[in-house]
Design a protein around this nucleic acid. Structure first.
Lengths: 122, 122
DNA sequence: TTCGAAATTCAATGATCGTTGAATTAAACC
DNA sequence: GGTTTAATTCAACGATCATTGAATTTCGAA
């Protein structure tokens, strides 16, 4: 399988990042990722409640091409995570206040409670 | 003259804010405004170096309708400012890290040095 | 009351966006 | 091999976007 393209973080412009954040589904994905980022166990198919598979692919690509997320390929699955260290080095403090802002939005799509309890990776 | 419409800050969604920030010209305006916000002396026509008058009107409206800026009408002129207090109450810390991020972008349009030295309002 | 400056509005353009559904790829497993 | 599962790709659609230039509104000043 061909490895997925990730932009060099230095090539990412602020306007690109904000463009990728200008959508409720993508903000929902970002918040969900921030809840499980340390385990790196967020598979694409875990977000099927957010949208159809093809639409999810589209939104995943937007986040990835804006330098916000990383995608690890493993068999037929793909695992997502936030590029926290690189983002913090390039835009100090930005991603955290973005996530905090998004987390307070009651209108974003959410994952079920099995995510927050860590039942999924067990 | 009819007063300009400003959305209630509670009606502004995070995705709306990020959408308004997804453009280099608007980020340039935001950074410039943050340099002179306390004096409230930023007139629309001061940004003619950024774009044509009609395009500026378009971008000003985007920022205003997303709850980011306020527009004060005075004669034939309009004065812009950032809605800092309201934004900080609704999205704590967000606007500051956004401005800080934008300020570091070397590719945004900039105002001349007479702005930073405060010569304009004199 | 006419003139000019400030800014908006309008119509038009090409580009990108979010979404759908069907077709495709790629790997895992019997 | 054949099937199932995970995810992407593609073509299409209407909607919104950024930009242009010309026409218009609004007010201040001569």
């Amino acid at each position: 399988m061909k490895p997925v393209f990730h932009p060099d973080i230095e090539d990412v412009a602020p306007a690109d990042v904000f463009g990728a954040l200008a959508d409720p589904i993508r903000l929902g994905i970002l918040v969900a990722l921030s809840d499980v980022n340390e385990v790196d166990k967020a598979r694409c198919s875990h977000f099927t409640a957010f949208a159809s598979p093809s639409l999810l692919s589209y939104h995943f690509a937007k986040l990835r091409e804006a330098g916000i997320t990383r995608m690890r390929v493993e068999g037929t699955s793909r695992y997502l995570s936030i590029r926290r260290e690189e983002l913090n080095q390039r835009f100090p403090g930005l991603i955290d206040s973005v996530i905090e802002t998004a987390r307070r939005d009651p209108n974003l799509p959410r994952l079920g409670p099995e995510w927050l309890s860590g039942t999924v990776g067990a």
